[in-house]
Nucleic acid binder design. Structure first.
Lengths: 115, 115
DNA sequence: TATACTTACTAACGAAAAGTAACTTTGTTA
DNA sequence: TAACAAAGTTACTTTTCGTTAGTAAGTATA
């Protein structure tokens, strides 16, 4: 792998956010702690990758994983840490940029209203 | 592929920025129009992928490609369009978030100072 | 008691994307 | 004429993804 002249922190940050689903998972968690199945239902990501990403995000300190053993079937809730919450303006920024600039083509429009 | 309840524009925006290298390429272009080889030199990305990404970004309207046939070997310059420039605060936001929150581990520190 | 069901995952496998190296084309300089 | 540079492209290997199926623990249902 080639060496870049970029700040390694920035590069690592981009590498994190530049992974498929990471941004959407974090965005989804902005609305509060959520269970695994809730995230799975809200995003078009498979359980396999969701699990993988959440593990990564937990390791990197963006997401907190809490298991509730008291309730019926074990409940696992994921939430943003301070580090994760600090990304709020970035995620919101991407959201509003998308609203302003992204155009959907026919395929994407169709996809949007079916299944 | 499952269907999400997300805004399709936001989803598409995230899909764009959530592709490897896209963010770094756009960030690099914040400092002004640049040639292919300049980007290739500045980022740890291979020519193959750089070419692919630039083509995508041009198609999506974030990047403008201009060929200068006048000068010695053909010169190709890439620059941000208005749509691309509109991402400035997002990219800067990721940069400062990274500065504040990202920690490098030993491997990454080592990697940083060699080659 | 047996069965079916739920949550939160994990394993296996084919398909798509990424990384690497070599090659092409046009023109330039030694 | 040989070697070099820019801007890619091709071919090939390795990683990552997406899909489907399966697991463990516990619950409700018959």
């Amino acid at each position: 792998m080639k060496q870049s002249s970029l700040c390694p922190k920035f590069e690592k940050g981009m590498q994190l956010l530049g992974k498929r689903w990471t941004g959407l998972i974090l965005y989804q968690l902005l609305s509060g702690p959520q269970r695994f199945c809730a995230l799975e239902g809200a995003l078009p990501v498979s359980g396999r990758l969701l699990s993988e990403r959440l593990k990564d995000l937990e390791k990197e300190g963006l997401v907190h994983r809490q298991v509730f053993t008291d309730s019926a079937p074990v409940r696992v809730e994921y939430s943003l840490t301070e580090m994760g919450k600090a990304l709020t303006p970035v995620l919101k920024g991407i959201e509003s940029w998308s609203q302003s600039w992204i155009e959907l083509n026919a395929d994407e429009m169709a996809n949007d209203s079916e299944e």
